[in-house]
């Protein structure tokens, strides 16, 4: 138990935890949105994220021509590269998420298959995608070029603020805000909420359920793609199995916040990021999952629906 280190480094650790939590939160949105609408755990979502990291990599090398050994970019080219990579990663993940729904879930859904059948289908898609990427990448990790030199830009209340993580927090925050507004204000967003409240009634009210489901998967995929780009920007590498640990963490975050609840996923993501960082400082990195999951279990014992309660409508977005 190293309380001394936790207290002396608390501000910096908090900053790092928020940056990690932002990535968790973006991924967990995909789990929570799909659960809210279909009551289904989309196990293939971690692979949607994984494909996003490779899309970002392709965008940087093939579209922007950034080479691994290049010096860090600057000025307009830097901004353009970031935007292009982000957009490509988001679109790719979004499209993949929609395709997964069409290929693996839609038919099962129409035929009224059991939840268990859909779950197996999800696991199947996940394994297929992981193995496909394992074969395509020769099982090797891939490095990501350094877009800009990572440096400390400020020190706020003792917290050392690093530029790449700051960017991630800001951009992720912006996306969460936009998504939140989208769900609460737009017509299709209202549709999503209606379906998650009562599917049959919303169909009777004239909501096109397939459209709602597609948009839900698209939104989840877009967010996972953004998370993927932020991940490679900070950690600068990816591999076919990058989605595994992150997917589990993000899923945990969704449950922690209350699965089916958008703001819950955000709260859960940040909470988990902070818990992992604090916990690993306190007891050692080997213990971080133990700590995070112990707290998850405790929260669920006290409040089985998660921090903010289950399902989208209860959050009253």
């Amino acid at each position: 138990m190293d309380f001394g280190l936790l207290f002396s480094e608390f501000p910096s650790l908090t900053f790092d935890g928020i940056a990690l939590g932002a990535i968790y939160a973006l991924i967990s949105l995909g789990y929570t949105l799909v659960y809210g609408v279909l009551r289904l755990i989309n196990f293939a979502h971690s692979e949607v994220f994984m494909i996003g990291t490779f899309a970002a990599l392709m965008a940087s090398s093939n579209i922007m021509g950034v080479k691994i050994e290049d010096d860090p970019l600057s000025g307009g080219k830097l901004i353009l590269t970031i935007v292009v990579c982000l957009v490509v990663a988001m679109l790719t993940s979004g499209i993949v998420a929609v395709l997964v729904e069409i290929v693996a879930y839609r038919r099962l859904r129409k035929r009224g298959a059991t939840k268990l059948a859909t779950l197996i289908s999800a696991i199947g898609v996940s394994i297929t995608l992981v193995e496909a990427f394992r074969i395509m990448t020769d099982s090797l990790p891939r490095e990501f070029p350094r877009f800009f030199e990572k440096s400390l830009v400020a020190e706020i209340a003792g917290a050392q603020i690093r530029n790449d993580k700051l960017l991630v927090i800001f951009a992720a925050g912006l996306m969460m805000f936009v998504l939140d507004r989208f769900i609460s204000k737009t017509r299709i967003g209202k549709g999503i909420r209606a379906v998650s409240q009562d599917e049959q009634t919303s169909v009777l009210m004239g909501i096109n359920i397939n459209r709602v489901v597609t948009v839900t998967f698209l939104m989840g995929g877009l967010m996972a793609g953004a998370a993927a780009f932020f991940y490679v920007l900070v950690y600068e590498n990816t591999s076919f199995r990058v989605g595994f640990f992150l997917g589990i963490s993000a899923f945990t975050a969704a449950v922690l916040g209350g699965i089916g609840n958008i703001r819950g996923a955000l709260v859960g993501g940040f909470a988990l990021g902070l818990l992992e960082v604090y916990g690993s400082v306190l007891l050692g990195t080997a213990w971080k999952h133990v700590i995070a999951f112990t707290i998850l279990v405790l929260v669920l014992l006290l409040k089985p629906t998660g921090l903010l309660g289950e399902s989208i409508q209860q959050a009253r977005v």
């Binding site: 280190l5 650790l13 790092d16 990690l20 595994f244």
Partner: peptide
């Protein structure tokens, strides 16, 4: 001393320990 199980990608806490 520290143990970082295979698959660890975020070393924030390990680095804080190294520095300390």
């Amino acid at each position: 001393k520290e143990t970082t199980p295979t698959g660890t990608t975020d070393f924030t806490s390990t680095i804080a320990r190294i520095k300390k």
